[in-house]
């Protein structure tokens, strides 16, 4: 896009543009860099009067130490990681199954009047509710059901609260697939539902994958529900678990930054994979990227 052509630009504008961009890049990357290198510094270096921008004595103790390293069996970090993985993948699978049915229904069956829009809107309102409003009564309900401190509670909550996102995203993807394909399958005698499973779902595969990855990231990062509903380190997900490091080891910044760095690694990889669909994902299909 060259709406404002580059040739007419003076050196002043180029300089301004360059310095704004450089500042933005440093502003974004420095905190991440600082987090990662802090996890490789010895305690002496971390609290020294002179701060170092690169570790002088590179140490892996916060990762590999048999007692305090986050990868050691004594440290709950690997348990948190496992719990997060289970919760994220299972709830995403459930959410996509349930959500794809509804998304298909909203995308294809044109009901009378504005019913489609109204139903979509009702689903969207669930996304607008502030989580804090729900989590307090939900805590009491889960307590009565005996589901506090279980991964079941998290599976139910995340499946439900990611549904509006999944339905809206998949609706946008399904609407891009021409319905003539299903119609010809139905001419050949297959039912509407089978046409959806056999024709539409495979065609929408890139959309399904992108939506799953977004849902996994949302679940992976969620803190409020996890903190309320999980109080036992055996079942905590990563954000809830890492937050306990802050109070437990008040100044163990090495372990904290090591755990934080490891917890964002999967998200970075996943976000790289869905780059193409990021805008759609962030706006639930409202803006095409």
């Amino acid at each position: 896009m060259a709406m404002i052509s580059a040739k007419q630009e003076g050196w002043k504008i180029k300089l301004l543009r360059g310095s704004f961009l450089t500042t933005a890049i440093i502003f974004v990357l420095f905190p991440l860099y600082w987090m990662v290198i802090t996890s490789f510094k010895t305690e002496g270096e971390l609290f020294a009067d002179k701060q170092t921008f690169f570790p002088e004595n590179f140490t892996f103790q916060y990762y590999l130490d048999p007692v305090e390293g986050i990868f050691s069996p004594n440290n709950p970090f690997m348990q948190f990681f496992l719990n997060s993985t289970i919760v994220a993948f299972v709830s995403t699978l459930l959410c996509l199954t349930i959500g794809s049915f509804s998304a298909y229904s909203l995308a294809r069956f044109k009901m009378k009047g504005k019913r489609n829009e109204r139903l979509s809107f009702i689903i969207l309102t669930a996304r607008m509710l502030p989580p804090i409003v729900i989590v307090v009564p939900l805590y009491l309900i889960m307590q009565k059901l005996g589901l506090l401190n279980t991964l079941w509670a998290m599976l139910i909550v995340y499946t439900g609260f990611n549904l509006p996102f999944v339905v809206w995203m998949l609706k946008a993807f399904f609407e891009e697939i021409p319905d003539s394909l299903e119609e010809s399958a139905m001419m050949d005698g297959s039912s509407r539902f089978m046409a959806f499973v056999k024709i539409v779902l495979p065609l929408a595969l890139p959309g399904l994958v992108a939506t799953s990855i977004f849902t996994i990231i949302l679940t992976w990062n969620e803190f409020l529900f996890a903190m309320f509903l999980l109080n036992n380190t055996d079942v905590m997900t990563l954000p809830a678990g890492i937050s306990t490091f802050i109070t437990q080891y008040k100044t163990n910044w090495g372990a904290l930054t090591a755990a934080a760095s490891m917890s964002i690694l999967p998200v970075l990889i996943f976000s790289f994979l869905v780059q193409k669909h990021l805008v759609k994902g962030m706006t639930m299909g409202a803006v095409k990227g």
């Binding site: 802090t38 990062n221 964002i264 998200v267 976000s271």
Partner: peptide
């Protein structure tokens, strides 16, 4: 550059807050 610049929004707000608390 675009991918680098959008990294922050993919991270857990909890982790982001921890990094800033350190800094």
């Amino acid at each position: 550059l675009r991918w680098l610049l959008i990294i922050p929004m993919m991270l857990s707000p909890l982790v982001v807050a921890i990094v800033f608390r350190l800094m």
